[in-house]
């Protein structure tokens, strides 16, 4: 049970980083931490006590495997995370071009 709780703690650390930090790059790192926490959570859901990797091999029976579905889901969510991260980094670089700073308290032309 405690591992799930630790996952939630990791998620909260990421969320804290996104909400509290002022540097754009640190915000992006926070987002990455959140994603990893969720990925870890999925893998832990799939785990069963002393299970083995869900790989079908010649001459072995399908017994005592961990649940393969969350692992497949995680692969998809990693791809999504990668694309979002790349987009965010690209936008961050462009923002640095325009504002010459990574500090979000100084990037506020939009108001109201």
């Amino acid at each position: 049970m405690s591992v799930y709780f630790l996952c939630l703690v990791l998620f909260s650390i990421g969320l804290y980083c996104v909400l509290r930090k002022r540097n754009i790059i640190k915000i992006i790192i926070g987002i990455a931490i959140m994603e990893y926490a969720i990925n870890l959570f999925f893998i832990l859901i799939a785990y069963r006590w002393q299970g083995r990797a869900p790989i079908m091999a010649q001459g072995r029976e399908i017994l005592g495997m961990v649940d393969p579905i969350p692992q497949a889901l995680i692969l998809t969510s990693i791809v999504i995370g990668l694309s979002v991260l790349a987009l965010l980094v690209g936008i961050a670089l462009r923002i640095f071009d325009k504002y010459n700073t990574f500090d979000i308290t100084k990037i506020k032309r939009l108001k109201g």
Binding site: A86, V89, G90, L93, R94, F96, D97
Partner: peptide
């Protein structure tokens, strides 16, 4: 490539 080019343009 895109990120590198962005960097070098700057």
């Amino acid at each position: 490539i895109v990120l590198v080019i962005l960097q070098e343009d700057r």
